[in-house]
Design a protein around this nucleic acid. Structure first.
Lengths: 209, 209
DNA sequence: TAGATTGTTAATCGATTAACAATC
DNA sequence: TAGATTGTTAATCGATTAACAATC
């Protein structure tokens, strides 16, 4: 469960955005100082981060932008998306299903589950909504171990239990409760308020202009 | 722009969730070891984090749950929400406007802006949608410096420029591009893919069961 | 008193930054 | 050759963890 250099991994998507912009602008070669400039980081940290991906630069010249884009995407697993189930096809679930970008960022939702008879059987953004009951057997049958949890808070733990029982070992949760799961299951909790809080704290620490 | 102990600040909302659960369960007193247990952290880190908030415990006993809830909320600024404008009342913007929890987490959106004639004038989850043109003067008039950016990626930079010109100094952006802004403006970029990537990396690093 | 826990200091660990030889 | 940049090592910085005296 130890992941090498998480802060560095978090910066990779940022480089990717910048590099894609470079590609679009016809820039074929870049350098650690140039990327750092664009990302607001010093060159050393950029070099260390890029080293993770295994992409090599040329001394005195820099890096090929296309190599970096490809290398980062491969390292992040973005050009080999993971099949996933989404549980809870309500408002938030629908937003996620319609968020095309995620498909290019490692996530391929192949089915959704819900308890609402009105939504069961419908197709949301190309994904069919199945009755929650089917969750028990489908992950095992299709060998899917990644689940997106977008049910209301009060059902989160109960549904998480169902997911775990069905063989889901990786849960990306958008519900607020802290879920308790067996040790072999990894939960990533998405908490909007963290980013907002960070923003408020940072601006409070800013020198008044 | 230096913020003391950002990792610690990020953990505070987690404690808060656990503590609220304790309150609901009628638990009046807790301790660093107990909180650490629930959050998956060692007691020392919990004590250090709680120290930030200024809440004091009692040697040999622990902390009063209600004190901690109040102390953390106050420290995070959650019981004194910041007035904000939202720009881009599309799908994502609508989801944010309907996300009640944020109101209890420091965000009070008082108006939204859009260019779509169909949505202008409508009221989404209690918030009126105004024409984008009004953005130029309203922040200054109402002394609002916090803005939520939920426009499509291709308009993000242009709209950010408008926000900055209007006096917004804190931008919470849900658009993917890296925005360039003057140094007195703080941008917090919300990137869904970061959490997902973290989950995939963590589970890849897990021992196979 | 015995057990538990705080607040705080010191030790450890990991990430950031600076520096520089090698090289295009 | 002169300028620039990589890859890597060493120095610095900050966060995590362990330890413990004070105290309820």
């Amino acid at each position: 469960m130890r992941v090498g250099n998480l802060p560095g991994i978090r910066r990779l998507p940022i480089y990717l955005h910048i590099l894609r912009q470079f590609l679009a602008d016809g820039v074929a070669t870049t350098s650690a100082p140039a990327l750092g400039q664009a990302a607001g980081l010093v060159a050393s940290v950029v070099r260390k981060d890029l080293e993770m991906t295994g992409v090599e630069g040329t001394t005195g010249i820099g890096y090929a932008v296309a190599d970096l884009v490809d290398g980062i995407e491969t390292f992040l697993g973005w050009n080999n998306p993971n099949e996933a189930f989404l549980v809870g096809a309500g408002k938030l679930g629908t937003t996620i299903l319609g968020y095309d970008t995620l498909r290019r960022q490692g996530l391929n939702i192949i089915a959704a589950f819900d308890v609402n008879p009105d939504t069961i059987g419908s197709v949301i953004h190309g994904v069919e909504v199945l009755p929650l009951g089917k969750l028990a057997t489908l992950p095992g049958r299709l060998n899917v171990t990644l689940g997106v949890l977008t049910v209301p808070d009060k059902h989160a733990q109960r549904v998480a239990d169902l997911m775990v029982k069905a063989g889901i070992t990786r849960i990306w949760s958008f519900a607020t409760p802290i879920l308790s799961v067996p040790t072999h299951v990894v939960v990533q909790r998405e908490d909007f308020s963290v980013g907002l809080t960070e923003l408020l704290m940072k601006s409070a620490a800013m020198p008044k202009k």
